[in-house]
Simulated scan of single mutants.
Amino acid sequence: MRANKLPTEEIERDPAAFADRVTADGRFGFAAEPGRYRLVVSRACPWAHRVVMTRRLMGLEEAVSLALTDPVQEIIGGDPHWVFTERTGSPGGRDPVLGIHALREAYLARNPGYDGGVSVPGLVDIPSGHLVSNDFDQLSVDLATEWGHLAREGAPELYPAALREEIDAVSDEVYQDLNNGVYRSGFAPDQRRYDRAVAAVFNRLDALEERLTDRRYLVGEHITLADLRLWATLVRFDAVYHGHFKCNRRKLIEYPALWAYARDLYQTPGFGDTTEFEHIRAHYYRVHTAFNPTGVIAIGPDPRGWLSEHGRETLGGRPFGEGTPPGPVPTGERVPPLEEQDRPAGDDWSVPKS
């Protein structure tokens, strides 16, 4: 989907163009080695966010370096591209490690004939400059299960074997109706398909509200990948999906259990400390010019509500199970405090120039 074109068909998310796996034993050709890979993400993107959260919770910051693209994509050849800019810490508009301006260059290094879309996250093999994978779901699973020898002491079990079937079943429902459903609502080409998509969004939110009323986490007694997958959408819901994508039957803050659940996780290391609302708002409102042609960025909602008390501790459970919280965020990866994210965007988020 070109963000600056009006939709003519219902949005369909293509399978990952590159899905090589990085494993502990290298059985698929890529071994989990410290310093070999660079994870390219945008803080605006929910699909990338779940991988960033997994990396943070597992304590893999030193093993896998992080590269931040600009939240506002640059139009190159008529298509939006994830690019590096000085605004997000890349001197001269090139990633200091990979030496590229646009993530597409890593795609082309892997396959010079590639002519498809470019998405984040992208895991890049630093020595070759080749993209290894843009499969956000498998990247999360592998970071949670195949990098244990490089993970921090006390890293949680985000994908425990005994719960995988339930995690996958819950995640599939959330993906179909909510994670991807907000996009199907926002990019609906006609009333009938919008009505169908937005109904699924709120039916799923209603079901999740009921599920989370008397349990602290989606599956089991601690955080799992199911929570990361859901939360990446919830944290963006009132800021962009409610208004920008017309998912406006109710706000997240109108769901007592879901809103408390979302705040509980926001205040848990690995969640709020990887979230940058300025990037989220700038991306959606600046890039989707088909239905926001002025590029005006909405100012709200006030993000400080994420720090209010939630009371979810009374439901029991331990966020990290038998593990421990991750340590401080590395200096170069810290997001601004909430009070600095609650300000008018002004001209700070113009389309980047190459």
Rank of each mutant, 00 (worst) to 15 (best):
K5P: 00
E10W: 05
E10P: 07
A17V: 12
A17R: 14
A17L: 12
A19I: 01
T23Y: 00
A24L: 12
R27Y: 00
F30N: 00
P34D: 00
V40K: 08
S42M: 05
S42W: 03
A44S: 14
W47N: 01
T54F: 11
R55Y: 06
R56V: 01
R56H: 06
L57D: 09
G59D: 04
L60S: 09
L66R: 04
D70K: 13
V72D: 05
P80I: 09
T85K: 09
G89C: 05
P91M: 06
G92N: 05
G92Y: 10
R94L: 11
P96E: 11
P96G: 14
V97R: 15
A102L: 12
R104N: 14
L108Y: 08
N111V: 09
G116F: 09
G116P: 04
V120S: 04
G122Y: 10
G122M: 13
V124Y: 05
V124L: 07
I126C: 10
P127F: 11
H130I: 00
L131M: 07
N134T: 07
N134R: 08
N134Y: 10
F136K: 02
F136R: 02
D137V: 15
A144F: 07
A144L: 08
E146W: 05
E146K: 07
W147V: 06
H149Q: 13
A162K: 14
L163C: 07
L163A: 13
D168P: 06
D168Q: 13
D168E: 15
V170P: 02
V170R: 14
E173F: 14
V174E: 00
Y175L: 13
L178V: 06
N179L: 02
N180I: 06
N180S: 13
V182D: 06
P189I: 02
D190Y: 10
Q191T: 12
R193Q: 10
R193A: 00
A197K: 10
A197Q: 11
A197I: 10
V198R: 10
V201H: 10
F202W: 03
N203K: 13
R204I: 01
R204T: 04
L205P: 01
E210V: 15
L212R: 04
T213G: 15
R215D: 00
V219W: 06
L230S: 12
W231C: 04
A232W: 00
F237K: 11
F237M: 13
D238A: 09
A239P: 04
A239V: 11
V240R: 06
H244A: 15
H244W: 11
K246N: 14
K246C: 12
N248A: 13
R249N: 06
P256G: 04
A257Q: 01
A257V: 03
L258T: 01
R263G: 01
Y266M: 09
Q267A: 03
G270D: 03
F271T: 03
E276M: 09
F277H: 09
H279V: 00
R281C: 02
H283G: 08
H283D: 07
Y284T: 02
Y285H: 15
T294S: 15
I297A: 06
I297M: 08
D302Y: 08
P303S: 00
W306H: 01
L307N: 02
S308E: 13
S308L: 14
H310R: 01
R312N: 07
T314H: 12
T314W: 05
T314R: 14
G316A: 06
G316Y: 05
P319K: 03
E322A: 14
P326E: 08
P328Y: 11
P328K: 11
V329W: 05
P336Y: 07
A345N: 06
D347C: 03
D348N: 10
P352G: 07
S354Y: 09
